[in-house]
Amino acid sequence: MLPQENVSQLNDYEVYENIIAFLDEFDQKTNDKRQNRNMEKSNTRISYQKNLREFFKILLNKDIEHLKEDDLNFKKRDIISYRKHLQQSGNSNSTVNQKMASIKSCMVFLNSEHNVNVSAFELKRLDETTQSYGIINQTEAELFAETAFQTEREKQYLKKMLILVAIRTSFRLDELLNLKWNNFEYVDGVYKVSIRGKRNKLVSNAISAKLYNQLLELKEINKQSKWNGDPEIIFQISTESVNRMMNRLRKKLNIDSERNVVFHSFRKVAINWELETSGRVDKAAQQGNHSSIDVLYKNYIDNTRDYTQAAGVRMEEEIDLGFLDNLTVEDFKEFIKQSGYKVQLDLVNYVKNR
């Protein structure tokens, strides 16, 4: 017979071991399907484990390694409160549904070995068609980045760069938080970045060499920071910390709550910028890694309509250009400097082709 203290130690890890057994099933199914005998970790396992760690950390402030059977005694109000927390943290309804489904699945599995109130996890799915995140322009978005750098108490530079890279790549937060240095590749003077994203789809985009060199400064900064995860991760920060940062920044910048500006709003910036400057929906869809233009139009393009700018109204307008005679060369230069990208690009093309 084992000594009593050893029995106690084994029992302390029983819940954790059963969670690992639950996760191992996903690896088994994936590797059987691929006829792979090396038992590689599946993407489903990685996603479920992340969701479970987040769940127990937020509700109990515990890592899954330290769970005991008493920790599994949840009431329905606890689960409803957790789901509300996920929504308020900027997760889409579809993401919340996915997270809750993975947690419920694990609890059903654990109920065979422990006393789990599975009925507490019987919640109706959230409507996935009604939620739309707020849209901000490039100037506003970059103000978020600068405000984070100037006012945040911890990891100021990391937070600034996280926002800037989000604006330029249109990547989702979970994709950004999984980025490693080897995800970047130097191509034709810019840096291509690729990662597995939603539904295991490979998403790619690019940032300038200038921004990449600024990002490289994080390598040394990260070495001096506390981080328990993979040291090759670029943005060494949790989803929860990012959501709390967004709450603070919205208050500092007096962003009206009705605008529903969340971190996901940064994903929309370059998509709308592309559409505004080039007028090409296909390039905007490319920027957002969208396979469907319908999804792009419904969820990412600014559909707010200014009726004074309707084509039928503007067709009737006549622009009086008589004021041009009174402008100086310096007036024109100042106008061009303050103009948007499209005006400046039109001027460059005009000079080239005249």
Results as ranks from 00 to 15, higher is better:
I237P: 01
N91P: 10
Y350H: 06
V262Y: 01
N61E: 15
E217R: 10
F335I: 14
H85S: 12
K180D: 13
N182C: 14
Y157N: 07
I20P: 06
E5D: 11
A141F: 00
K160A: 00
K333Y: 05
K160F: 00
V116E: 00
L59D: 08
K180H: 14
N91E: 09
A206N: 06
N349R: 09
E330I: 03
E217F: 07
I221M: 02
K57M: 14
K57T: 13
V15G: 02
M161H: 03
F332G: 09
L126P: 04
D27V: 06
N18H: 08
Q88E: 15
K62C: 08
D256P: 12
L177T: 00
K226F: 09
N260T: 14
F149C: 06
N137I: 00
G197L: 07
I163D: 04
W227R: 10
S291A: 10
I58S: 13
K192Y: 01
Q287L: 03
Q4A: 13
Q87W: 09
V351R: 14
R267H: 10
F144Q: 02
D63M: 12
R259Q: 13
S208M: 10
A270P: 02
R250S: 04
T151H: 04
Q49P: 08
N18E: 07
T130M: 08
F144D: 02
G322A: 05
N6Q: 07
S278C: 12
D12E: 12
